[in-house]
Simulated assay, not measured.
Amino acid sequence: MGFLDIRNVTKAYGNVQVLHEVDIEVEEGEFLVLVGPSGCGKSTLLNMIAGLESITSGDIAIRGRPMNGVHPSKRNIAMVFQSYALYPNMTVAQNITFGLEMHGVPKSERDKALAEVAKLLQIDHLLARKPGQLSGGQRQRVAMGRALVRNPDVFLFDEPLSNLDAKLRVDMRTEIKKLHQKLKTTIVYVTHDQIEAMTLSTRIAVMFKGYVQQLGTPKEIYDQPANLFVATFMGSPAMNILPATVVTENGAAHAEITDAEGAPRRLRFSQQAMAQWAGRKVLLGIRPEAITDPEGADRKSGNIQQLRNRVTVTEPAGSDTFVTMTLSGKDVIARMRADANVVPAQVFDFAINMDKAVAFDPETEARILA
């Protein structure tokens, strides 16, 4: 049993089911991120943990205590909303301590908790201001302070950074991670941003169409995606997906694809068990960073395959250069070093790390476990 247990939870509005038998155990001190596109059910699940939405079937428990039917105020959770939800007529100090005051906490204890949280979040100098006098990042810190001051069992974050500009999002992401590492709190965090999910979490639940597609660590999700949706949703740029046919050559399994000229080319799989798929179609998945120039290839890999192909587009991006080529009729992106000497229309020797390649069943879209 976990610290927060979500057992076979479903949610339906009339005949429309929006969550399907969600089953997640969250251990104490974990940072679980629910990630997926809009409408996948992640915010609905968060609201059910908070008690803002009823459970159609299944159970939610915190510290072994069933939460079904328990009022939100009795769950000992704290929620940080996308909109911050601050009272505009109250000062920062009043916003942070208002919940404590409503629960009858003595003023001396409120003042002590306020001082500790304000110092932790570095907002001591803002306590006398009102929300209208604060920047977006400052308002976000106040909303976090209001949650922290209560010392709840579980913190719930509902896309808290989506209203911030790009640079401030990165800064606040770092602050939230540092805060979690310092306080060891249990957090469930909702976002549609897969970079936030990868950088913040100890575990990720990737959601789509009301189902948890995969639950695992960021590394598991990234390196061993359970299906085609997870593979293409997680990662930027997205994983390259190529139609291929499995063929055997000298007893080894290869993915047969075509180059920019339409000529057949073969890439040897690292997994010998792929030979079981000989003669069948698969979808070959290769991350952009697994395709580079020979000098930039991973020296620890035991299966670097060279492929000569024509370059279509190059995109310098500061620390990296993204190079596009055509394979099996699809645009394929390679991620190379900033100083890689590659130009459009050039015929170039690409190095492909097949140790990092995965394959999917084109019918079920599930990863082939080989």
Rank of each mutant, 00 (worst) to 15 (best):
residue 278 A to F: 11
residue 242 L to P: 08
residue 324 T to F: 13
residue 92 V to Y: 00
residue 244 A to R: 02
residue 42 K to H: 03
residue 350 F to Y: 09
residue 9 V to F: 07
residue 194 Q to M: 10
residue 319 S to Y: 11
residue 337 R to A: 07
residue 111 D to Y: 05
residue 314 T to P: 13
residue 189 Y to K: 07
residue 3 F to Y: 15
residue 154 V to A: 03
residue 223 D to I: 14
residue 8 N to P: 01
residue 125 H to D: 07
residue 74 K to S: 06
residue 110 R to Q: 14
residue 165 D to G: 04
residue 313 V to D: 09
residue 218 P to N: 13
residue 11 K to Y: 05
residue 47 N to W: 09
residue 79 M to Y: 00
residue 272 Q to C: 05
residue 304 I to T: 07
residue 97 T to K: 02
residue 21 E to R: 09
residue 313 V to K: 11
residue 287 R to T: 02
residue 276 Q to S: 06
residue 316 P to D: 12
residue 126 L to C: 08
residue 54 S to C: 01
residue 61 A to K: 13
residue 243 P to K: 09
residue 268 R to P: 02
residue 6 I to V: 11
residue 268 R to S: 02
residue 345 A to M: 11
residue 250 N to V: 04
residue 303 N to W: 04
residue 81 F to N: 00
residue 183 L to D: 05
residue 320 D to L: 14
residue 367 R to C: 01
residue 24 I to M: 01
residue 156 L to S: 05
residue 12 A to R: 10
residue 347 V to F: 01
residue 135 S to N: 10
residue 334 A to E: 04
residue 118 A to M: 03
residue 311 V to R: 09
residue 159 E to Y: 00
residue 143 A to D: 10
residue 153 D to E: 13
residue 81 F to Q: 00
residue 180 H to M: 05
residue 246 V to T: 01
residue 140 Q to N: 15
residue 323 V to S: 13
residue 115 A to D: 11
residue 261 E to P: 01
residue 76 N to L: 01
residue 89 N to E: 09
residue 283 L to G: 07
residue 60 I to E: 03
residue 12 A to E: 08
residue 282 V to K: 00
residue 173 R to N: 06
residue 131 P to N: 12
residue 161 L to N: 07
residue 151 N to K: 15
residue 361 D to N: 15
residue 313 V to C: 08
residue 303 N to H: 06
residue 211 Y to G: 02
residue 165 D to V: 06
residue 208 F to E: 02
residue 317 A to V: 15
residue 347 V to P: 00
residue 93 A to V: 13
residue 219 K to I: 10
residue 84 Y to C: 04
residue 184 K to N: 13
residue 321 T to N: 13
residue 79 M to V: 04
residue 270 S to Y: 11
residue 31 F to S: 01
residue 209 K to D: 10
residue 29 G to E: 05
residue 286 I to Q: 09
residue 47 N to K: 14
residue 133 Q to F: 10
residue 255 A to F: 14
residue 289 E to Y: 02
residue 362 P to H: 04
residue 100 L to R: 07
residue 166 A to V: 15
residue 329 G to T: 10
residue 71 H to G: 00
residue 145 G to E: 08
residue 16 V to S: 09
residue 249 E to Q: 09
residue 364 T to K: 08
residue 288 P to A: 12
residue 217 T to S: 15
residue 291 I to R: 06
residue 46 L to H: 03
residue 68 N to V: 14
residue 60 I to L: 10
residue 319 S to N: 13
residue 21 E to T: 11
residue 129 R to Y: 12
residue 80 V to M: 03
residue 173 R to C: 05
residue 51 G to T: 11
residue 271 Q to H: 12
residue 114 L to Y: 09
residue 154 V to S: 03
residue 223 D to W: 13
residue 350 F to L: 00
residue 17 Q to Y: 02
residue 180 H to P: 08
